[in-house]
Design a protein around this nucleic acid. Structure first.
Lengths: 360, 360
DNA sequence: CTGAAAGCGCTTACAG
DNA sequence: CTGAAAGCGCTTACAG
């Protein structure tokens, strides 16, 4: 509850806090920035004043002093779902870190170079590279060559040369496959994703490995090639479901294709999940839009947004103080979301299984 | 192309420009802010220096001086598609206007008040209210009471008390209805949206009015109630398509329901658009995800994002200089996107019709 | 551990 | 029409 305010704006400044806590502005600055060289007593006094005044750092002022940190986001065709969740997370962290976020869109290779140039001319100090660009060797190489700090987001096979934030796609697909097997499925169809995207490769590999480990055979006709698009999912699902014998479950490499599979199943008058269980991957909004809702692997995209900004800011600051770039790969936790598309009888309630590395 | 740089950062400052143009920093500031009191000759000199140095204002510094403008975005459950497009537009304008964007999420009425309080304690000077909150009398009233400048986004019936940015939903639905009639349809089914949302009401009204004007009768069984969700679209479309005689086209109040209608049609082994044409509204990503792709009304959501920030910043600045709030309602242009879901035979290529007010 | 001074890049009055 | 000075709110060296 902010009550006592000073400026015309109504917000308290650093000095208001200093005055109230009977210390210098310097000391307040140290406290809010978590400096170690402050006595516990002073820290408490200051924190209390901060509370009482409802003080919030003026990020603009801090940034003006420290030197504006400008972060570029180079996006091409991520799904709107990905982009919005990612932006929410990234923006929050930008506000906290005092960075300014610049967006630049590009389609093909040519416009990619142009977009990078535009970001540079806007003075960005580093770039965030979400999918599918995160898997583009050329883009990453180009950034490396011009010495631009970068963080690849949601690539499944991060280059050791570049910092990255991602979930473990292999492990996620393995978890889903195991779950389906535990549900009693032994004949499972799989819809592959765009072979150009690294997550597609790992998800497929994990599916095959897990099936084999469980002693289950996967005939070639149970694998269908998709491209991550709804349209391709339609074709792939039709292939899987129009055979003499059908699988009892389909695991699609992403939600769009899983949604398409539901549509195909309904077209064939199959009940989902009683006749055919269907699972996706990503937990994009479409997963809870379609009916029945999709069992899927949830990626914490918002958290990945904030984590990637965090990494990038570290990278930039390190670079300014002349350190060698500290390449980091951050693995985020995913969850298995169980919903109606795999749970028959309308009995079992939807539930969530927390898996993957825990965030500290 | 920025070549000559000065600061460690690599970016040119106001004074670099001033030096190069042989004027004071003050004059540069005036030029880049479009002040009238600069001679044409000086302006040109300065602009040239700006070009040569690739100068970009340091928004953080400007904002630090002017007083941080903090803009809050109070969102509840807009679709991810809406949110991402809106954010891209809003953020761009925030960068230009030197505003900082704060996001706060809320679900129900209680958390709504809390979210508003959190934004206030973060020191925001005004708030953006996208759907569905833009139609919440209580939220808008609350903001009004505490004297918080606000802009309602994409409400169909804006209160004259609050600034708003929107498209003309009535006109859009009218355009779509006319288009379907021109395509030769006289028996058109309509899926209504959530009655709580103002756009749903106007879209329905426009459909009915336009049909009547064309001398076409709309029997009660051609109207089906939906709630804007995919699930509700499934039920509504089933209702429309399982009758003894079917309409030749369905106009759904939004894309999610139109996508559901396609799924139902396919389930009944109907060809879209040959057996049944289907149209949506909004042009969210699902419109070009499903197959066949949806004919729909495109809302320029990104532009609406930047326009709403623009309006809000004006409002805030006016308020600071003690003026009475200048309530504005900005109408944005929409377009009719014709795609495969209404165009049979695979002959006609997709096309776009520009309609609505033109932006200057 | 704490503080007085200077400065980040820009704009707001105030002069000319 | 143009500029010198002061200051936005904060942090970075530099002292104690």
């Amino acid at each position: 509850m902010a009550i006592d305010k000073t400026r015309s704006n109504g917000t308290a400044t650093l000095y208001d806090v200093a005055e109230r806590a009977n210390v210098s502005g310097m000391t307040v600055s140290r406290v809010i920035n978590g400096s170690a060289h402050v006595s516990e007593k002073t820290r408490e006094k200051v924190m209390q004043a901060v509370e009482e005044l409802g003080y919030q750092v003026n990020v603009a002022a801090r940034v003006a002093r420290v030197g504006t940190l400008r972060v570029g986001l180079l996006y091409s065709n991520p799904s709107a779902a990905f982009l919005s969740a990612f932006l929410v997370g990234a923006m929050g962290q930008c506000n906290r870190s005092g960075a300014q976020l610049f967006l630049e869109h590009c389609d093909d290779m040519k416009s990619q170079r142009k977009a990078i140039e535009r970001l540079i001319s806007q003075g960005v100090d580093g770039m965030l590279v979400p999918p599918p660009l995160c898997d583009s060797r050329s883009a990453l190489k180009h950034l490396k060559e011009i010495g631009m700090p970068a963080v690849a987001v949601a690539t499944a096979k991060p280059s050791p040369q570049v910092s990255a934030v991602r979930i473990d796609d292999y492990d996620g697909a393995r978890t889903m496959t195991r779950y389906l097997i535990e549900q009693g499925h032994s004949d499972i169809g799989f819809i592959k994703g765009d072979p150009e995207h690294t997550p597609a490769q790992l998800r497929y590999q994990a599916f095959m490995d897990t099936m084999h480990e469980a002693g289950l055979n996967v005939p070639a006709e149970r694998i269908s090639q998709g491209l991550f698009t709804y349209r391709s999912g339609l074709l792939a699902a039709r292939e899987l479901l129009s055979q003499a014998t059908r699988p009892t479950a389909i695991f699609a490499s992403n939600d769009d294709m899983a949604a398409a599979a539901i549509s195909v199943a309904h077209g064939l008058h199959l009940h989902v999940p009683d006749d055919i269980a269907i699972a996706g991957f990503d937990d994009t909004p479409v997963a809870s839009t379609v009916w029945p809702e999709l069992t899927t692997i949830h990626q914490p995209i918002g958290d990945m947004g904030s984590a990637s900004v965090e990494l990038l800011v570290e990278l930039i600051k390190g670079r300014r103080s002349g350190e060698a770039p500290a390449i980091q790969h951050r693995l985020m936790p995913y969850t298995l979301e169980v919903r109606e598309s795999t749970v028959g009888g309308g009995l079992a309630p939807a539930f969530t299984v927390q898996v993957g590395p825990q965030v500290s």
